[in-house]
Write a protein that binds this DNA or RNA. Structure first.
Length: 301
DNA sequence: GTCCAGGAGCCAT
DNA sequence: ATGGCTCATGGA
């Protein structure tokens, strides 16, 4: 008979970590904010995170007596990254200077490849609130239970590829995945049968890794780049979505209707080795300013 | 009612 | 190479 897992907490000291903007910047969809905390799952572990002066307070359920903060949690948070160093590698232009000013402490998280791929397959032409809803529904119906404290809000992990395959397309559509259901199912079955190995993406060149991902139906340049970036595999990857496109057109191209491939060529040349970080700063900057849609030089709501 | 959402695939120029 | 159309679905 083992005693119930005790709830543990410890503070990780880190400068310049804005937990709120990091968790709310469209990288992850499974964390929910409750009572000034962010709660979610990292792999099979339930966690609750709270911003405190000088660091982040981490709450987790102990698996072994007296264990330190699990490395998976620290790895996910990327709290050992020197943000000043990253920011100083951004191009010296007025746009990035403003973005850095507005997004102080914004970080990139390091997600597990399958969860990240699945999340962004579900993201296409969906609003972030909708993506979160679908994500939660998939967890509720097909995700394994987590070990949690009594007052937990998040109680399931994200479904394994195997669980998605067993669920089948119809059930995925019931979770409002729509036309993405087929794509998610196909990705899951290729992970299960080993025809794509997501663990290798970091060891491949960025172009190779991107092609590997884009071979999946429903995964194009943008979603592939999200996976390359948000799993920590390739820091240069610069996903260009509607928000980034809007921001780039307005801030770098005087509002002209530059097509996305041309924007992509610009970003590849302009933002250095930490282009992905720069992208996240621009994305958040554009969202907090509710950057307006530009059509033929005219604004719309 | 219309437009849009952290897109991608397919087909017609 | 480039530009439209469609996919499913809810919110603004």
């Amino acid at each position: 008979m083992s005693a119930p897992s005790p709830l543990r907490s410890e503070v990780v000291f880190v400068d310049d970590y804005n937990l709120d903007s990091t968790m709310d910047s469209g990288q992850v969809f499974g964390f929910v904010q409750s009572a000034s905390c962010w709660e979610g799952a990292i792999g099979h572990r339930w966690v609750r995170l709270r911003s405190v002066p000088g660091g982040i307070e981490i709450h987790w359920m102990e698996e072994q007596r007296g264990e330190p903060v699990p490395v998976e949690i620290l790895d996910f948070l990327q709290s050992d990254i020197d943000l000043g160093e990253v920011v100083s590698s951004f191009p010296c232009d007025g746009v990035m200077e403003s973005a850095v000013e507005v997004c102080k402490g914004l970080r990139l998280l390091k997600q597990s490849p399958w969860h990240c791929l699945a999340s962004f397959i579900l993201s296409s032409t969906k609003q972030i609130t909708q993506i979160k809803w679908i994500h939660a529904e998939l967890c509720r119906r097909f995700g394994a239970r987590l070990i949690v404290p009594d007052d937990a809000v998040v109680v399931h992990m994200f479904p394994s590829p195997d669980a998605i395959v067993r669920a089948g397309e119809g059930a995925l559509r019931e979770c409002k995945a729509g036309f993405r259901a087929r794509y998610l199912l196909e990705a899951a079955s290729r992970v299960v049968d080993g025809s794509i190995q997501l663990g290798n993406l970091a060891r491949m060149s960025m172009d190779e890794a991107r092609s590997e991902l884009m071979a999946l139906p429903g995964v194009g340049r943008k979603i592939a780049d999200c996976v390359l970036l948000f799993t920590g595999a390739h820091a240069e990857a610069f996903p260009v979505d509607v928000w980034i496109a809007r921001a780039l057109r307005e801030l770098y191209f005087k509002g002209r209707e530059v097509p996305i491939p041309k924007l992509q060529a610009f970003t590849d040349a302009h933002f250095g080795p930490n282009g992905g970080y720069a992208q996240q700063y621009l994305f958040h900057y554009a969202r907090v300013h509710r950057m307006k849609r530009v059509v033929g030089g005219k604004e719309r709501a």
